[in-house]
Amino acid sequence: MDVFERLYDYQVDRVKQIIEDAAKAQPQGTVFFGDSLIQSFDLQKYFPQQSFYNCGVNGATSEQLLLLHDDAIGRYHPKQVVLLIGTNDLGHTDESRLMDGHHQFDMLDVVYQVFQLIEIMNLKYGIEHVYIISPLPIDERKKKTDIRNNARLRLLGKEFSNFVNEFDNVSYIDVFDDFLDEGQLKKEVSIDGLHINEKGYDILAEKVKAALNI
């Protein structure tokens, strides 16, 4: 099946742009791969001297990242990958995953898909290092769904942090508590209860810089 058939219409142009940008990318750089939190990350602003490439796709799930690895990683020939994913896996409403009106959801499916993605990065592309950023909290008063809440997002992050020990070249960047205030996403960094503003990216950039020793 064509990859584009597995994307939402609003994602297709973004993926085409990622493919186009790959032709201008320098090998041995760093690819940022993930959902809208990555796509909106202004890498040029925070890392102007680095060969960093933004391959974030708005609305992406871990399943979609698995489909896009050839275009978003393989074409770039990166040395490192920074990955942020998971929120949309917990946030989408898919009628095919409903039974008796309730979501049938297994968080381990998400964990396994990310695990598969890292194995592909290592075996197929020889990535030197992968950095997994923890899921960020949400404001449950605005963005909570049947299966997406801060307890599950924290648990998903814990599952990610547990499996990084299976790899010699994977590090976990835990930012969950940096964005949390009284159990919710901090109001001062939030746009809509899910996405973050410039203040939020200031925090995220500092955590990434520390992890990458920049």
Score class of each variant (00 low, 15 high):
11 Q>P: 03
7 L>H: 04
87 T>N: 10
67 L>A: 00
43 L>K: 07
89 D>Q: 10
37 L>W: 08
83 L>Q: 04
47 F>K: 04
5 E>V: 06
28 Q>T: 11
31 V>A: 01
42 D>M: 03
9 D>Y: 14
47 F>Y: 15
9 D>S: 14
56 G>W: 01
61 T>H: 04
41 F>Q: 07
95 E>R: 14
24 K>V: 10
14 R>T: 13
79 K>S: 15
27 P>C: 10
6 R>S: 10
71 D>G: 05
13 D>G: 11
39 Q>A: 06
74 G>E: 08
98 L>M: 11
21 D>G: 03
31 V>Y: 13
90 L>W: 03
19 I>W: 08
10 Y>M: 09
61 T>Q: 05
5 E>A: 12
83 L>M: 07
96 S>P: 00
72 A>R: 03
79 K>I: 09
87 T>S: 14
61 T>L: 09
77 H>Y: 07
63 E>F: 08
31 V>K: 13
90 L>E: 06
71 D>S: 15
22 A>Q: 04
35 D>L: 08
15 V>S: 03
6 R>C: 02
71 D>L: 12
22 A>F: 08
49 Q>G: 12
65 L>M: 06
91 G>K: 13
22 A>S: 15
45 K>S: 14
99 M>W: 07
76 Y>W: 09
90 L>M: 13
66 L>E: 03
58 N>T: 03
72 A>K: 00
41 F>E: 08
62 S>C: 05
15 V>G: 03
54 N>E: 01
71 D>F: 12
81 V>Q: 05
40 S>D: 09
99 M>I: 15
18 I>Q: 05
24 K>M: 11
22 A>V: 13
29 G>S: 04
23 A>N: 12
19 I>H: 11
18 I>N: 03
49 Q>E: 13
22 A>E: 03
50 Q>W: 01
92 H>L: 11
53 Y>R: 06
28 Q>G: 10
63 E>W: 08
65 L>C: 08
30 T>H: 02
85 I>D: 01
28 Q>K: 15
38 I>S: 04
40 S>Q: 07
82 V>I: 15
49 Q>L: 15
12 V>P: 07
57 V>G: 15
56 G>K: 07
25 A>P: 00
92 H>I: 14
23 A>F: 12
42 D>Y: 06
14 R>W: 05
65 L>H: 01
89 D>N: 15
53 Y>E: 01
66 L>I: 06
30 T>W: 06
20 E>T: 10
98 L>P: 00
20 E>W: 02
18 I>W: 02
40 S>C: 13
16 K>S: 04
14 R>C: 13
55 C>A: 14
32 F>S: 13
62 S>W: 01
35 D>R: 00
